[in-house]
Write a protein that binds this DNA or RNA. Structure first.
Lengths: 153, 153
DNA sequence: ATAATAGTTGACAAAAAAGTCATATTATTG
DNA sequence: CAATAATATGACTTTTTTGTCAACTATTAT
């Protein structure tokens, strides 16, 4: 139960796109440089996001990636699901069953119900957070910091 | 962001202990058989739980494991933390930073605050669920099932 | 005492996740 | 129309996580 590397980095790449004005293209190289990741890795992440329809790519010289929709309409839930490491509610109890075919216990055992409850709970949190709200928060923090540093507040 | 094998199996082993009456010892072999896991694996899981103080072991012939505290006082949060795969709130942004030493962005960036918010949110869910409540639920399900099958309801 | 049973430990093996690389494809620009 | 700069793809490598094994220690029963 922790955020995977792909989820974290995928989100970061997406935020880099969200920070650039209007459907302006950003290259893998730029994103990689800004995030301190390898280009190969960033490319892989962006391909996952493209498959999920969150970003869209343009080939050729001067090509790059853009968000497919406004940052305010993209939720963290979508991002995390796009990275493919989220337990899907209907797979609960199918992954970890020991050497048995199905859940060793009842067909609707206590474990199944907590795990699926937890998954739903987490997704509701993620689905309520948009890329835009993350940036907002970031800018507010930056602003507060700037004010404090300049002795204005 | 998904439940790890260790978390799931650790919980299952613990529930096996919670199901047996009073501080009665259960051997690794029994648990392994009931869960369809290898003894070696169950042993490893139980050692983690023992290190965290959730269970206690007795050696020698007729030895085995017991819960250290009543099932109603052990929360899922404790279990998950014992298995060591939970993001700890003060490690946020120290694991995934690309090739940089620290968070590439602000020292209190948008990502950090969501991830730590999410972690807290998840833990509050887990900390409100006890082993006992999982068993309750299990028994209720079993009872409902039994009633339905016997045509009583 | 000794044999048998059960937990303990650390090293190792296998599987999964993360990351890299080489090669192909596409578009632009001179 | 060639050179260049960008994305696309799949195979491969590395790292991390899971799981197994073998040798050891403790406890009980005979």
């Amino acid at each position: 139960m922790k955020i995977t590397a792909q989820e974290e980095y995928g989100l970061r790449c997406l935020l880099q796109l969200a920070r650039t004005p209007q459907g302006q293209l950003v290259s893998v190289k730029e994103i990689a440089a800004k995030e301190g990741l390898s280009s190969a890795n960033v490319e892989k992440l962006l391909r996952l996001l493209a498959k999920a329809g969150l970003v869209h790519s343009v080939r050729g010289i001067r090509g790059g990636y853009v968000l497919n929709r406004p940052a305010a309409s993209i939720t963290l839930g979508e991002v995390v699901r796009a990275m493919g490491k989220m337990e899907s509610t209907n797979h609960i109890c199918t992954s970890y069953t020991g050497q048995r075919d199905a859940c060793v216990h009842f067909s609707d055992c206590g474990i199944r119900s907590v795990w699926s409850g937890l998954t739903t709970y987490i997704q509701s949190f993620l689905d309520q957070t948009t890329l835009a709200s993350l940036l907002d928060n970031e800018y507010n923090v930056a602003e507060r910091l700037a004010r404090r540093m300049s002795g204005t507040a």
